[in-house]
Nucleic acid binder design. Structure first.
Lengths: 266, 266
DNA sequence: CAGTGGTCTAGACCACGAC
DNA sequence: TCGTGGTCTAGACCACTGT
C-alpha cells in the first residue's frame, strides 16, 4: 500500500491480510475518527488508488465491503458518501395484546423520507407464482403441514414514503385464488383479503425474526444491491381452532426498519 | 456470454443487465431446477468461465452474489457447493412471561453442529473498549439517557457447538468495571454479572430486532465474510423502578439463528 | 503435487449525474 | 462535457485443501 505506514491498532493484522481489507480498515478508521464525517464525500476511486498506491479495483473491493457494512453509500456518477447514523422505521410490538401495531409505521418514517403519505404508498401484488416445490415453497408446505401442490402463493411489495420497503410472500392451503385478488398491481392489504377468500378468521400462531442477504429477486423488488442484509419476519397464522391457514414471509431492508417489543407499561 | 442463448423468464432483463448478473441468474436457475442439487459442487471457476465465454473475474462476481444470498457456499481450495436449506437455531420467546427461553438453544442446534456440548461453549469476554463517542457509543448513550462519558462498555462472544454464534456489546451507566469482570477470556454470562456489579435487579424495558451487514470487526469475531447478513437484537434493561441500567446489542449470524415468538398456548 | 479459490495489476470502455 | 462509479478483460501470482 505505497509508502503509507500501516496503522490499525485493533486485531493485529495477520501477515496475509489482503491489501483491500487493510485499506477498508484504514478508511473505516478515518470515518470513525471523523476525518470523513457523516455525509462527506470520500475521495474518488482514482484518487484513493493514487493515494494508497494500489489499483482502482483494489480500492473498489475495499469500498464495497464498507458499503455492505452500511458504513458508506455509493451513488453512481456522483461519489461515495459516509452514511449518517441509521434512522429506521420502528414497528411496535405489544407482547400482551399479541399484535403488531403497524399504525405507527408511517408516523415513524425518518423526516427525509416523509414527504407526506405518497400516492404510491400501500401494499401491491407483484405476482402469483406457481408453487413448484422450490426450497421456499417446500418450507411453506412444511410449516402448514401440507404438500406443496396443495398451496397457492401470492407475492407483494409494500411501498412507503415513495420507495419499496418490504417484499412479502404468502402461501395458503387452498386455491385457485380469485384472479382479481392476485392481479399484479392490485392495491390493498393481502392478509385480510386472503382471510376473506378463505372464509376464515386468522390469528397469529407464531412469528420469527431472522436475517438473510437479499437474493436477486428481492434485490430487484426492493431496489437494493444483492446481498444487502434483510430482516426477515416469517410465521404462521391459523384459524381460531388452530388449523394453520397462512404462511407469510416478509423481507425488509435492514437499514430502514426494525421491530421493537415493549415489555413495560407506559 | 458466448453462444449460450439468454434464458431467464422472470423480470425481463433490462438491456443493460451486466453479464455477471445474468450469469448469476442462470446459475441460480440451475440450482432451482435441481441441475446443481443441494450439496453438489459447481463447476470450477475456470470451467464456468470457459463454458460461458467470460473472464474468470466475471464468474467470480456472479458466484459472490450467490454466496451473499446464501445460495452457495465457497470453500477455498476445494470448490463451490450448493447450500442445503438453512437449519437454524430457534430461540423461543414467550410474549407472556416476557422472557427469552435460552435453554432451548443448544438442544436446537442442527445435528451437524451437535458434537455434544463443546468444551468451549459459553460466553466469553473479548474486550472492554473505551467509550469514545463513536456512533455505537452515542446510540448507547442516547438509549440510556446519559452522556457517553458516563458509560462503561464490555464486549463478548457466545460460542456454541464449537463456533462463535453471537457477538455481544454491553453498555452500563457506571464504572469503572471490576477488572476481573472485563478480563479478556473471562467465561460466564455477563448480564447477571453486570447486574451484580451494579447492585441492581434488571428487567426488560424493550428489545428490537434488525438486520445489518457484518462490519470488519464483527466479521472477524464471528468468522464470517464482511457484509454477511447479521440479525441484531438490541434493547434496554432497567431496574424495577424503571431506570435504564443496561443497553445491549447482540449480532448473530442470520444463517444460523432466528428468534421465534409463540402466540398460542401449547 | 495438482486443483481450487483469493488477490492484484494495467488498461479499456461504458452508464449515469451534474453542470 | 466532465467526473463519477460500473463492468469486463487478460494475465499473473499466491494460499489453501486434499491426495
Amino acid at each position: 500500500m505505497g509508502t503509507n505506514q500501516p496503522s490499525s491498532n485493533e486485531a493485529a493484522d495477520q501477515p496475509n491480510t489482503p491489501v483491500y481489507r487493510r485499506l477498508a480498515r484504514r478508511l473505516q478508521e478515518r470515518v470513525d475518527a471523523g476525518a470523513y464525517p457523516a455525509g462527506a464525500r470520500l475521495p474518488s476511486e482514482p484518487e484513493l488508488a493514487a493515494e494508497f498506491g494500489v489499483n482502482r479495483l483494489t480500492v473498489r473491493q475495499a469500498v464495497a465491503e464498507l458499503e455492505r457494512a452500511a458504513v458508506v453509500e455509493i451513488r453512481r456518477g456522483v461519489g461515495t458518501f459516509v452514511r449518517p447514523p441509521a434512522v429506521r422505521v420502528s414497528i411496535t410490538v405489544d407482547p400482551r395484546s399479541q399484535r403488531f401495531d403497524l399504525g405507527s409505521v408511517h408516523a415513524a418514517l425518518p423526516d427525509g423520507d416523509r414527504e407526506g403519505r405518497a400516492p404510491g404508498d400501500g401494499e401491491f401484488v407483484v405476482a402469483a407464482p406457481a408453487v413448484t416445490g422450490s426450497a421456499e415453497d417446500a418450507e411453506a408446505a412444511r410449516r402448514l403441514g401440507r404438500t406443496a401442490r396443495e398451496l397457492s402463493r401470492v407475492d407483494s411489495v409494500i411501498r412507503l414514503g415513495g420507495r419499496a420497503r418490504a417484499a412479502c410472500s404468502y402461501w395458503v392451503p387452498f386455491g385457485p385464488l380469485p384472479a382479481e385478488l392476485v392481479r399484479p398491481g392490485r392495491p390493498g392489504n393481502l392478509v385480510p383479503a386472503l382471510a376473506r377468500a378463505a372464509g376464515v378468521e386468522l390469528e397469529y400462531d407464531w412469528r420469527a425474526f431472522g436475517a438473510v442477504g437479499a437474493d436477486l429477486a428481492d434485490a430487484e423488488l426492493l431496489g437494493v444491491p444483492p446481498g444487502t442484509a434483510l430482516l426477515v419476519r416469517e410465521g404462521v397464522s391459523c384459524t381460531p381452532d388452530g388449523t394453520p391457514a397462512l404462511y407469510v414471509r416478509r423481507r425488509i431492508d435492514g437499514s430502514s426498519a426494525r421491530f421493537v417489543l415493549h415489555f413495560r407499561d407506559r
